[in-house]
């Protein structure tokens, strides 16, 4: 009784703050927590029931871990896991370095209007869908009319069959990803840089620090917490591949699968004809669990070294 009374007193006391949290909390409740009940589909052979969705779930047969088998049954399991992990590691590391670099450069541009133009220009690709980006890439790589092959031809070189050559695709994919994502991420860091107290730089200048020293000793250290948080969040998604990047940009070319097949495209290709939602749920659950474990571990490690930078 006392606890309940305390509960309501707490609500009244914090009503403004709670009210501000409410929309976000409700959003998570409806779109993240309620759907979690659906994970039981991963352990069922989903069959339709005429009494609707819940009845279908309840009436479907339990199949234990059968739905997970297809993920691990072939030697493709190694390839898709390797591709997913390595690409994401590359994206996180190179993306981080480039984004921070861009943010620092943008913040140091004296002409603020020009800086805004650059910023907008770099920001724009983030809003393009992968289908469109895929066609951009195609206009460069098409074997007959592609820009690159035209250049090769005018130089007297042999033209390349880009969509049949797996060797070059790791570079192409990383390049395309960075082109699309760096602008957006750099804005986050730019905002953090803008928040740094200007008097620190003034003091450094009076002490005779060069631009480079200012960046190394003021900007980067003060950016560390946000860098850690952004990286931790990215690590949580390390088992999710960007479907559009790996499906649309290589134009679903079979000869490239050894370097473009990732967990998400594998699941899509395996299930697009059978439409077994039990198996796709199983794949999603597997990715989430691995992501969860990775976030917890990396957060634990971060907390060991620097408690303030950790997420929680």
């Amino acid at each position: 009784m006392k606890m309940v009374g305390g509960f309501f007193r707490d609500i009244i006391k914090n009503k403004v703050l709670l009210l501000m949290v409410l929309p976000g909390a409700l959003w998570f409740l409806f779109f993240s927590y309620m759907p979690m009940f659906g994970t039981i589909i991963a352990f069922k052979q989903y069959r339709f029931s005429r009494d609707g969705f819940w009845a279908s779930i309840v009436n479907s047969k339990w199949v234990g871990l059968d739905n997970f088998k297809f993920l691990f049954s072939t030697n493709d399991a190694y390839i898709i896991t390797r591709n997913t992990l390595l690409y994401n590691v590359a994206f996180i590391i190179i993306g981080l370095i480039l984004s921070v670099l861009m943010a620092v450069v943008l913040s140091e541009i004296a002409n603020k209007r020009l800086a805004k133009v650059y910023q907008t220009g770099m920001f724009l690709p983030y809003f393009l869908s992968w289908v469109i980006v895929g066609y951009f890439a195609f206009s460069f790589l098409s074997s007959e009319r592609g820009l690159l092959n035209q250049v090769f031809k005018s130089l007297g070189w042999e033209s390349m069959q880009w969509y049949n050559d797996p060797k070059v695709w790791p570079y192409i994919l990383i390049l395309v990803y960075l082109w699309k994502a760096v602008g957006y991420n750099s804005v986050v860091y730019l905002a953090a840089i803008m928040g740094i107290d200007k008097s620190l730089y003034e003091a450094a200048m009076i002490d005779g620090a060069s631009k480079f020293q200012q960046i190394r000793n003021i900007t980067i250290p003060l950016l560390t917490p946000i860098i850690t948080i952004m990286t931790l969040l990215a690590v949580g998604k390390i088992f999710y591949a960007d479907f559009g990047l790996f499906y649309q940009v290589p134009r679903d070319s079979g000869t490239l699968y050894s370097v473009t097949n990732v967990i998400d495209t594998y699941v899509y290709r395996g299930l697009k004809t059978t439409g077994e939602i039990g198996m796709s749920t199983a794949a999603g659950l597997y990715q989430s669990v691995v992501g969860f474990v990775l976030v917890m571990t990396s957060n634990y490690i971060v907390r060991k070294f620097d408690k303030d930078s950790a997420l929680f």
């Binding site: 297809f70 049954s73 072939t74 493709d76 290709r269 059978t274 198996m279």
Partner: peptide, 11 residues
């Protein structure tokens, strides 16, 4: 054979 179909589909 759903698991096999999914794998064969990929190949």
């Amino acid at each position: 054979v759903t698991n096999e179909i999914a794998a064969v589909q990929n190949v």
